[in-house]
């Protein structure tokens, strides 16, 4: 069925190396997105109308444009239009951070607006300072609401990194393709085994993270 080819040479190690490339890019983008998203999200409840409008436009762009289109613009478009030459890795990190920050900002905004104003008022009435209110009352609640959703966002970002093969980064799918092509003669059925393995690899990475998200959600539901 084409699984034997994985045991030949260092094919399995190459495949795992490809996965590492994809995971590295998603990890960097996740870190940037979590930070930037929190900043943007807290700004979205800002009273300043201009900031609000800009952020809303930004979120709408990300909501509508497929990530692959953004990747193409960042990688091919900038080279031609602006004359700057960025590496495929840099382009994908920029795009996934751009996209992830917007998603994260939306989550933060949702969590913030879900906290009733009475919470602020009551804690002020109890004599807490505004700073104390944030630290002891608001932020713990937000973290409980946010954490399962942001973990979910991490799995989505990992899944989306599979697109980077389309702009020429040698990640797990591309390595798989190379192995299949190199062994076309000896292992004509390699495509099944390799793509099945890639499928399983992605599942093995994303599923535990999804489970963690679900566990936290259930634990904090009450």
């Amino acid at each position: 069925m084409g699984f034997e080819v994985l045991l030949k040479g260092n094919n399995m190690i190459r495949l795992l190396g490809g996965l590492a490339v994809a995971l590295k890019i998603s990890l960097i983008s996740v870190c940037i997105s979590l930070i930037m998203g929190t900043v943007f999200g807290s700004l979205m409840n800002d009273r300043h109308p201009l900031i609000k409008k800009i952020l809303r436009a930004y979120l709408e762009i990300v909501r509508i444009m497929p990530q692959l289109v953004l990747l193409f613009i960042a990688y091919f478009g900038t080279t031609k239009a602006l004359g700057v030459n960025i590496s495929a890795e840099a382009a994908s990190i920029i795009v996934f951070s751009f996209w992830g920050s917007a998603e994260m900002a939306d989550l933060v905004r949702g969590a913030l607006s879900g906290i009733p104003p009475a919470q602020y008022e009551s804690s002020l009435a109890l004599g807490l300072t505004y700073h104390q209110t944030l630290v002891y009352i608001i932020i713990p609640q937000i973290i409980r609401r946010m954490l399962p959703l942001s973990i979910n966002l991490i799995t989505r970002m990992i899944k989306t990194t599979s697109l980077i093969m389309m702009i020429g980064i040698v990640e797990v799918l591309k390595v798989g393709q190379q192995i299949i092509e190199a062994n076309r003669k000896n292992y004509p059925n390699a495509a099944f085994g390799i793509y099945f393995t890639v499928f399983v690899l992605y599942f093995a990475v994303c599923w535990p993270i999804s489970m963690l998200s679900r566990y936290l959600e259930r634990k904090w539901e009450a």
Binding site: M1, T155, S162, F192, I194, Y195, V198, Y202, F203, S210
Partner: peptide, 23 residues
């Protein structure tokens, strides 16, 4: 639900389009 929510569409398509014909 768990399998398809935790794998990328691109990988699913490659598996179905290039992998399954081998079977």
């Amino acid at each position: 639900v768990e399998i398809f929510r935790n794998t990328p569409l691109l990988v699913q398509l490659f598996f179905v389009y290039f992998g399954m014909p081998k079977l």
